[in-house]
Write a protein that binds this DNA or RNA. Structure first.
Length: 879
RNA sequence: GCCCCUAUGGCGGAACUGGUAGACGCGUCCGACUCAAAAUCGGAUUCCGCAAGGAGUGCUGGUUCGAUUCCGGCUAGGGGCACCA
C-alpha cells in the first residue's frame, strides 16, 4: 500500500491552530472535575529556547496531557522569570532598554515554544517584570514586614565586585558569585533580609512530609538548614583578667562531654569581648585588624593559616574553680554562627589540636576507643573524634560521650551564673536569613521610603506599585536607580518632609518564590492571590507535579517553601504550606565537544566519519581535523549546542519531544545525537504508516476485542500496553513508556501485514481487534507526540480530536497470559523451560518440571533434595 | 575532611517486592527490493568456543535453593556541604 510520508511541517501548525481555536487548554477555576496542577520551572527570557527547555517542557506536557485524558481539570501555565542582570548587561552593551530587550526575547521564545505543541494555558501568562505582577510582590513584602518576617539590619554580607551587588549566602558557590563567577568579598552593609531562620525548624521537619520529592533534594536542603544540638555554656571570667563590665563568656558547643579536655577559649575577631580587650592593647588591636583585613574572599579563608592571639583574659572552669583557661582571638571563629566563641578541646577536634600544638596549649585525651588503655592513650598529631569511652574526666570517666553530654548539660542547667543558668540546651541552625537587597536596576523595587525623621517607612498601599523609571542610564558603574536624577526623591508618606526611596531592588529569586500561586488567578488586581483559587477543595495549591533542574535544589525550592509559609502567616494562603507536592528534577541535555585548531567547533560545523571503526571529525568548511572531546553539558562557551529550531524544522516537534523522552531515564542526563533524532523520526513515520495503512483497510470496521488466535494476541498486546504505558507515565518513567510503545508497534506491524495480505479473507475478529489496537496506540502516543496523534486519529475517522479523548480503559483479563513459561533451574542454573496452564497447582508444576528430559538426565534416577516452585515465576530443582 | 548517589553489551538503557540478565532504542554486520541510491522490510549482534558447553551485571567476601537486586569491605566516577564549634 502506498502511503504518503507524514509531513510534520504541514500537520503541526494545523493542529496547534485547531487546539487554540477550541481553547482546549484554557483552564477554568470553577470546573467541577478533580484538579491537577502541573508546572515546569518557568524560563528566564534569555533570547532563545534551548534544548534543555524542550526536555523540561516535554515532560511536563506528557503529564498534563495524560492527566487531562484521565479526566482531571489540569492547570498547565507558562510565564517568564523576567527580571535579572542579563537585561542590564544587554542594555549597557547594546544601548537598548532592558524592558524592550526582555519583551523582545519573550516574544521570540513564546513563538518558539508554540511550535513545540505544548498544551499550555497561555491566558494565564505572567511576566515578573510586569508592574501588574510586581505590585503584588511589593504588597507581599510590606505584609511580611508588618508580620515581623522582614528585617533591615547591618551584617557582613557577600559583595560581588563584578555585578556590583550583594548576594545571598545561597548564591555564593565556592566563594564566587553564582552569576558572575567573581570572587566574593565580605562587606558590612545595612540591607533587607527575609527572616527565613524563623522557620528553620519547620522547613527542616516538613521535609519528611514531602513523599514525592527526590531524597537527594531533601537531603541537600536538610544539610543546608544544618540543625545541630548542643549546649550554650557560660564561662565565668577569672577575677582580675576581665575587661570592665564583663563577667562571662558564652560559647556554643555540640560536645559538652569533652569539657574536661578544654584547654583554651577562642573568640571571633569582631566579638564584643575582643573589641574590649583590644582597648589599651595595641598588639591585640593590630592582630584583630589583620584578621579582619586579611583575605575576605572565601577562597582565601579556606587556605588561611589558623592563627590566634592571647587576650590576657582568663575563664574559670565550671567544675573546678582553681582551673583557669586562656581566651584567644582566633581567625577561624565566625561571629555569625553560635555565639562567636568556642571552647577548644584539642584531643577531640583536629583544628583545635593544630591550634593547641602551635601555641603550646595542653592536650588532654578525654575520649578513647573502647579497647584502648587509659593509662597509655595519647593524642599527639591526630584528634580522636569517634565514639568511645570517657577518660581523664573525673565523674564522667567510663561513660559514653552521649551519656556524658546529658550529665554535663543536666548539671550546668542546675547551676547559675549571674541570674542565668550556666548551661542551656540549644538547637542551632546553619541557615542564615535571606538577604534580598540588590543594588541593581532591573528588579522589583523595594517599596520603602527612608526619612531622616521617621526612619524606614512603607510605601502606602495606594501608591503601589512603585514602578521602575522607564528612562535609565547605564553609563556609570553601580546602581542606575541610585544615579537616576529624580526617581528617588520623594516626600515622606508619614511626615511629608523630603525623603528618599530605597534604591535597591529585590533578589530575582523573590519573583520566582510565589509565581506558582499567582498562576491560580492572575486576573486578581487587588490581591496577590484569590483564596478560593489557592485553598480548599477548588484551590489549585499545592502544585501536584513540579518539574525542573536540580540546580534549584536549594535556592529556589527553599525560598518557595519559605514563601508559602510567610504567605500563610499573612493571610495570602490558608491551607498549603508546602507549595510543591511532587517534585521531579530532570537531567541535562549533553553533547560531544569538538575542538579544532581555532578553538571549539559547533556540531553543525563538524562532519563525523567512520574510518577503520574509529570515529573521526573534521570541519565541514575546510576539512581540517577536529578532536572529539568529552560529552558535556551544552554550553555556549564550548559551542556543543544544538538548536531546537533546526531539529524541529527538519523533523518536527513530535520527533524532538519523542527523542528527548526516550532512552535515558528522565532524571539522568541525555546525550543528544543526530542518529538518535533520526531514529525517533523513523518511528514517527512507522506509526503513521501503520495507522494509515490500517485505516484504509479497516475503514468500515468497528473496534472490538479479539477472542482467539491472532486476534486475541493483538488485543492482549494492546490492552497490556494501555496498562503499562499508563503506569509508566504516572511514575514519570517516560523512557519505559516509550519502550512499551515500540514493542506494541513491533507486534502490530506484522499482524496488520497479514490482515492486509488476506484482505477479504481476513476474519472479522482480527480486523476489529486491530482497529481497537490502532485506536489505543494513537491515544497512548498522544501525550508525547500530540500532532502525530491528531493526524492518525483523523485518519481513523473517529471524529473529534485525540486531545479530547479519554485515556483508553484496559480489560484486566487481557493483560494476563493463560499459559506460563516457567524457567526450570537445576541448582540455580537454568536448564530448561516448562510451558503450563496458569491455573496449574504447585504439585502439577513440580511433576511436569521433574519430567523434563534435562532434569531426568541430571537426576539420573535419584530423588531431588528439594524442589522450589514459585507460582507464576520459576522452578528450581536442588540436587 | 564530612554527607550522599552511581557503576549492567560497542553506546543509551531494561529487569515488578530476591526468581529466565541484556526488553526497547542507537550503532554494526548479513540478506531482500532497486540499473543504482534513498526509503523500507527480514535476520544476526554480551564474551570465549566450530560445537557441546562455559563465563558474565566495577572488585572482593557473605546471606540464600536462587543475588544486577540484600549485608560487609574496597575501587572508580559524579554531586552536595565545608573554619558551622
Amino acid at each position: 500500500m502506498a502511503t504518503e510520508r507524514y509531513n510534520p511541517r504541514a500537520s503541526e501548525p494545523k493542529w496547534q491552530k485547531a487546539w487554540a481555536e477550541a481553547k482546549l487548554f484554557e483552564t477554568q477555576n470553577d470546573d467541577p472535575r478533580p484538579k491537577y496542577y502541573v508546572l515546569e520551572m518557568f524560563p528566564y527570557p534569555s533570547g532563545r529556547i534551548h534544548i534543555g527547555h524542550v526536555r523540561n517542557y516535554a515532560m511536563g506536557d506528557v503529564v498534563a496531557r495524560y492527566r487531562r485524558a484521565r479526566g482531571f481539570n489540569v492547570l498547565h501555565p507558562m510565564g517568564w522569570d523576567a527580571f535579572g542582570l542579563p537585561a542590564e548587561n544587554a542594555a549597557r552593551d547594546n544601548k537598548v532598554n532592558p524592558r524592550d530587550w526582555t519583551y523582545a526575547n519573550i516574544d521570540t521564545m513564546k513563538r518558539q515554544l508554540k511550535t513545540m505543541g505544548l498544551s499550555l494555558d497561555w491566558s494565564r501568562e505572567i511576566a515578573t517584570c510586569d508592574p501588574a505582577y510586581y505590585r503584588h510582590q511589593q504588597k507581599l513584602f510590606l505584609d511580611f514586614w508588618k508580620a515581623g518576617l522582614v528585617e533591615r539590619k547591618s551584617a557582613k554580607v557577600n559583595w560581588d565586585p563584578e555585578d556590583m551587588t550583594v548576594l545571598a549566602n545561597e548564591q555564593v558557590i565556592d566563594g564566587r558569585g553564582w552569576r558572575s563567577g567573581a570572587l566574593v568579598e565580605q562587606r558590612d552593609l545595612t540591607q533587607w533580609f527575609f527572616k527565613i531562620t524563623a522557620m528553620s525548624q519547620d522547613l527542616l521537619y516538613s521535609l519528611d512530609t514531602l513523599e514525592r520529592w527526590p531524597d537527594k533534594v531533601k537531603l541537600m536542603q536538610a544539610n543546608w538548614i544544618g540543625r545541630s544540638e548542643g549546649l550554650l555554656l557560660r564561662w565565668p571570667l577569672a577575677e582580675g583578667t576581665a575587661p570592665a563590665g564583663e563577667s562571662e563568656l558564652e560559647v556554643y558547643t555540640t560536645r559538652p562531654d569533652t569539657i574536661f579536655g578544654a584547654s583554651f577559649m577562642a573568640i571571633a575577631a569582631d566579638h564584643p569581648l575582643a573589641r574590649k580587650a583590644a582597648e589599651g592593647n595595641p598588639a591585640l588591636a593590630a592582630f584583630i585588624q589583620e584578621v579582619k583585613h586579611g583575605g575576605t574572599s572565601a577562597a582565601e579563608i579556606e587556605t588561611a593559616e589558623k592563627k590566634g592571639f592571647d587576650t590576657g583574659i582568663r575563664v574559670t572552669h565550671p567544675f573546678d574553680p582553681a582551673w583557669t583557661l586562656p581566651v584567644y582571638v582566633a581567625n577561624f571563629v565566625l561571629m555569625d554562627y553560635g555565639t562567636g566563641a568556642i571552647f577548644g578541646c584539642p584531643s577531640g577536634d583536629q583544628r583545635d589540636l593544630d591550634f593547641a600544638n602551635k601555641y603550646g596549649l595542653p592536650v588532654v585525651p578525654v575520649v578513647m576507643p573502647a579497647d584502648a588503655d587509659a593509662a597509655t592513650f595519647q593524642i599527639t598529631e591526630t584528634a580522636f573524634t569517634d565514639d568511645g569511652v570517657m577518660i581523664n574526666s573525673r565523674f564522667l570517666d567510663g561513660m559514653s560521650p552521649a551519656a556524658a553530654f546529658e550529665k554535663v548539660a543536666d548539671l550546668l542547667e542546675q547551676r547559675s551564673l549571674g541570674n542565668r543558668p550556666m548551661g542551656e540546651r540549644k538547637v542551632q541552625f546553619r541557615l542564615r536569613d535571606w538577604l534580598i537587597s540588590r543594588q541593581r536596576y532591573w528588579g522589583c523595587p523595594i517599596p520603602v521610603i527612608h526619612c531622616e525623621v521617621c526612619g524606614a517607612v512603607p510605601v502606602p498601599a495606594k501608591n503601589l506599585p512603585v514602578e521602575l523609571p522607564a528612562e535609565v542610564s547605564f553609563d556609570k558603574p553601580g546602581n542606575p536607580l541610585d544615579h537616576h536624577p529624580t526617581w528617588k526623591h520623594v516626600d515622606c508618606p508619614q511626615c511629608g518632609k523630603p525623603a528618599r526611596r530605597d534604591t535597591d531592588t529585590m533578589d530575582t529569586f523573590v519573583d520566582s518564590s510565589w509565581y506558582f500561586a499567582r498562576f491560580t488567578d492572575p486576573w486578581n488586581e487587588d490581591q496577590p492571590t484569590t483564596l478560593s483559587a489557592v485553598d480548599g477543595k477548588r484551590g489549585w495549591l499545592p502544585v501536584n507535579q513540579y518539574i525542573g533542574g536540580v540546580e534549584h535544589a536549594i535556592l529556589h525550592l527553599l525560598y518557595s517553601r519559605f514563601y508559602a509559609r510567610a504567605m500563610k502567616a499573612t493571610g495570602h494562603l490558608n491551607d498549603a504550606v508546602e507549595p510543591f507536592e511532587g517534585l521531579f528534577t530532570q537531567g541535562m541535555v549533553v553533547h560531544e565537544t569538538y575542538k579544532g585548531a581555532d578553538g571549539w567547533a559547533a556540531p553543525s560545523d563538524v562532519r563525523i566519519e567512520e574510518v577503520d571503526g574509529k570515529r573521526r571529525a573534521s570541519l565541514i568548511a575546510d576539512g581540517s581535523p577536529v578532536e572529539i572531546g568529552p560529552i558535556e553539558k551544552m554550553s555556549k562557551s564550548k559551542k556543543n549546542t544544538v538548536s531546537p529550531e533546526e531539529i524541529t524544522d527538519s523533523y518536527g516537534a513530535d520527533t524532538t519531544r519523542w527523542f528527548m523522552l526516550s532512552d535515558s531515564p528522565p532524571e539522568r542526563d541525555v546525550e543528544w545525537t543526530d542518529d538518535g533524532a533520526a531514529g525517533a523520526h523513523r518511528f514517527v513515520q512507522r506509526v503513521w504508516r501503520l495507522v494509515a495503512d490500517g485505516a484504509e483497510i479497516l475503514d468500515s470496521v468497528a473496534a472490538g476485542t479479539g477472542g482467539e488466535g491472532d486476534a486475541l494476541a493483538v488485543s492482549k498486546a494492546a490492552h497490556k500496553s494501555v496498562k503499562q504505558v499508563g503506569e509508566d507515565i504516572e511514575k514519570l518513567a517516560f523512557n519505559r513508556a516509550i519502550a512499551r510503545l515500540y514493542e506494541l508497534v513491533n507486534s502490530l506491524q506484522p499482524a496488520l501485514a497479514s490482515i492486509i495480505s488476506a484482505n477479504a479473507d481476513a476474519d472479522a475478529g482480527s480486523k476489529a481487534a486491530m482497529r481497537q489496537a490502532l485506536e489505543f496506540l494513537v491515544l497512548l502516543i498522544a501525550p508525547m507526540m500530540p500532532h502525530l496523534a491528531e493526524e492518525c486519529w483523523d485518519a481513523l475517522g473517529n471524529g473529534g480530536m485525540a486531545a479530547e479523548q479519554h485515556w483508553p480503559a484496559f480489560d484486566p483479563v487481557l493483560t494476563v497470559d493463560n499459559e506460563i513459561v516457567y524457567p526450570v533451574q537445576l541448582n540455580g542454573k537454568k536448564r530448561g523451560e516448562l510451558t503450563i496452564s496458569r491455573d496449574a497447582d504447585q504439585g502439577a508444576v513440580e511433576k511436569a518440571a521433574l519430567a523434563l528430559d534435562a532434569v531426568q538426565k541430571a537426576l539420573d534416577g535419584k530423588a531431588p533434595r528439594k524442589v522450589i516452585v514459585v507460582p507464576q515465576r520459576i522452578v528450581n530443582v536442588v540436587i
